[in-house]
Computed example of a mutant assay.
Amino acid sequence: MIPFLDLKAQYSQIKPEIDAAVARVIASGHFVLGPEGTAFEERFADYCQTAHCRAVNTGTSALHLALLAAGVGPGDEVITVSLTFVATTAAILYSGAKPVFIDVDPLTWTMDPGLIEAAITPRTKAILPVHLHGLMADMDPIMAIARRHGLVVIEDAAQAHGAEHRRRRAGSIGDLGCFSFYPGKNLGAFGEGGAVVTHRPEFAHRVSLLRDWGQEAKYDHAIPGYNYRMDEIQSAILNVKLDYIERWTEARRSAAERYDALLSDLSFARPQPPRHARHVYHVYAVRLKGRDHALSALRDAGISAGIHYPVPVHLQRAYAELGYRAGDLPVTEMLANDFLSLPIYPELLPEQAVEVVATLRNAAAPRLSEAVAARVEHPQSVMTWSHNRRAS
């Protein structure tokens, strides 16, 4: 059996430290907004190369509060992508704004900056790029467009702890960055958790108020707020894990390099990060025609695999009222049909990666050959832009 993710193996490595941290919080009797949370916020802000961090209870809450702190509200529009978990869209709707979807780049699978300006209207307030699978979106042109039009940029970095774009960390380039610490994330809690990072003190202060019922002090409610606080046990656990995040990240990257080598004859079937990017491989996805057959074969062989994500948000029934239809985002839809996520985690053994790829080849060799030849139908100007960017 090869699991998709092995959290038990991770825990076994650091069990004494985790157990001691949890016991310390229990003995303290201080369970919310205490010293563990303050320490984690300071350390995670430093890790993300930002001035401020505010810990919250989920990644969804982080997105919601970042939008509100930036002044996004009813009547506004937020440009984002549909190739993401639904939380990205849900948070925009929670703020009262409308998500406006644009397509992704066919090589990096993240927001295509060449499509942003055509989506801007007088109601546009923010751009919300998603760093998918651990690879950051191309932030330089995104920021240039945002500054030109006076827009706020909020990074959805829920899958990108420690990822880099030209040596700048995820969350540090936009006006705000949002993280999830769901247990399966590269930096995961033992339950739910999230954080907002920013360089701007006014945004950090507003998130502080919003996460704690809008309180300036106890029972002094300056603004309407929410109960979005992170508890001290999760903060203590994350403080322990933060000591290991770089080691685990490099182990993930080594596992990804091993997959790359084993799949090296399958051109364009694998992630294509630009040379200036540090991909942290929260997910290692390949593109594969006949994906569902291969997924079944892997599972039959005792190998856990997944799809991130099989139905893009704009085609989810829950968001039909947004008015999108099949064909509106062709690259996104093609990738959703082809994606297959292979097991990846720091403890993945070399022989396990070999077994995964051997099973994949046996199940889908003809279809993999088709995937190599597959080409995306995409406007020529955007394809030219994409390839020029890859060379930079």
Rank of each mutant, 00 (worst) to 15 (best):
M1H: 14
I2R: 02
P3D: 12
I14Y: 06
I14R: 11
K15L: 09
A21N: 13
A21T: 07
I26P: 09
A27D: 07
S28C: 10
V32W: 09
L33F: 13
G34W: 09
F40H: 05
F44T: 11
Q49G: 05
N57P: 06
G59Q: 03
T60F: 14
L65K: 07
L67C: 07
L68S: 03
G71W: 03
G73H: 06
G75C: 10
G75N: 04
S82W: 04
A87F: 08
T88F: 05
T88D: 10
T88G: 07
A90V: 14
I92W: 00
S95T: 06
S95E: 01
S95C: 05
V100L: 12
F101K: 03
F101T: 03
T108C: 06
W109P: 01
E117L: 13
A119S: 10
P122C: 05
R123M: 06
R123D: 10
T124M: 05
K125S: 01
A126C: 02
L128A: 08
G134D: 02
L135A: 04
L135C: 03
M136Y: 05
A137G: 04
P141N: 13
P141K: 08
M143A: 08
A146T: 09
E155G: 00
A160E: 04
R168A: 10
C178P: 01
G193I: 00
R200S: 13
P201S: 15
E202R: 09
F203L: 14
A204S: 09
R229F: 12
D231G: 11
L238C: 13
L238A: 01
K241M: 10
L242E: 11
R247C: 12
W248F: 08
T249Y: 04
A255T: 02
E257H: 14
Y259S: 02
D260H: 06
F268L: 11
A269E: 04
R270N: 01
P271K: 01
A277I: 13
Y281H: 00
V286R: 00
S296M: 12
L298G: 02
I307M: 12
H308V: 08
P310W: 11
V313F: 06
L315Y: 13
Y319F: 15
A326T: 15
D328Q: 10
L335R: 03
F339Y: 10
L340D: 02
L342R: 03
P343S: 11
I344K: 01
E347G: 09
L349V: 10
V356W: 00
V357E: 02
R361Q: 11
R367V: 05
S369R: 14
A373G: 15
A373R: 14
P379Q: 12
M383R: 13
S386G: 13
H387D: 08
R390I: 15
A391E: 14
